[in-house]
């Protein structure tokens, strides 16, 4: 399987996705400082409390990060899976003496791993810069403790998994409709819906926050496994 993943990386240029990941990181970093600056710009606003704590700011940043990487993963699923299985390239893929499911699995693992790793790196960069700068000029009111950092690290890991898993919904729709446009549009819709639903969950207080986010992660991973199995079955029985 490692060899198949290596071949996927060799024949697909991931440079544009790495640039995409960097742009997401820079944009969210800018937003984090904007969030932290809001209470100082307009302290009279009754809703600014959320921007005064590390928990509030990191939760918002992670929701946006997960949504952005869901879209990025959808674009990758489109390039590595939909575009290859719905074009003449399928003749080439199916001419190799390798089981069709194994080739698909290599593609899915490539996208999943790339999404999770790049989202984690992105999060590490964002929060490292923000937390370090808090030592120089503090914008938040509460204290930055090891517990806060650990909580953010766990939420970052879960958010990265959620974004890769959620994107499989757009993969399934895109393969079903054999359309790049459908894949992208569904990716954006999923990211938007997730953003709306997740805001309440990510902003929950205390242990409930981690419990709720863990539940979302488990549900999306099971959904991803279910959808991947369906796509795999369809591809196995595909006549081209």
């Amino acid at each position: 399987m490692l060899k198949l993943i290596k071949l996927e990386l060799e024949r697909n240029n991931l440079k544009s996705y790495i640039i995409g990941g960097c742009l997401i990181t820079l944009s969210i970093l800018g937003l984090v400082y904007l969030f932290a600056a809001i209470p100082h710009i307009d302290p009279s606003d009754p809703d600014v409390g959320i921007f005064l704590t590390y928990n509030g700011i990191s939760a918002l940043a992670l929701i946006i990060l997960a949504a952005c990487f869901t879209i990025l993963a959808s674009v990758m699923y489109n390039k590595l899976v939909i575009a290859e299985y719905t074009s003449k390239k399928i003749y080439l893929l199916f001419s190799y003496p390798i089981k069709k499911e194994r080739i698909l699995a290599a593609k899915l693992i490539t996208v999943f791993a790339f999404t999770v790793i790049s989202a984690i790196i992105s999060g590490i960069v964002i929060f490292s810069v923000f937390f370090l700068s808090e030592g120089l000029f503090q914008l938040c009111e509460d204290t930055l403790t090891i517990q806060v950092i650990l909580r953010v690290a766990i939420l970052l890991l879960l958010s990265a998994v959620i974004s890769a898993a959620l994107a499989t919904i757009s993969l399934w729709f895109g393969y079903w409709k054999k359309s790049a446009t459908v894949t992208m549009v569904v990716g954006v819709i999923i990211a938007s819906v997730f953003g709306s639903i997740a805001s309440e969950i990510f902003l929950a207080q205390g242990r409930m926050q981690l419990v709720f986010v863990s539940i979302i992660t488990i549900v999306t991973v099971f959904l991803a496994i279910f959808l991947i199995m369906r796509v795999s079955k369809q591809i196995k029985n595909t006549d081209v």
């Binding site: 060899k3 071949l7 024949r11 240029n13 003449k88 080439l92 003496p97």
Partner: peptide
């Protein structure tokens, strides 16, 4: 089968290397 399909951004040599690796 039908039209020849390749990884167009790669060189001919790289295309053949990838093919041999899959084989």
């Amino acid at each position: 089968i039908e039209v020849p399909v390749f990884y167009e951004h790669l060189s001919a040599r790289k295309n053949l290397e990838i093919h041999l690796s899959y084989m």
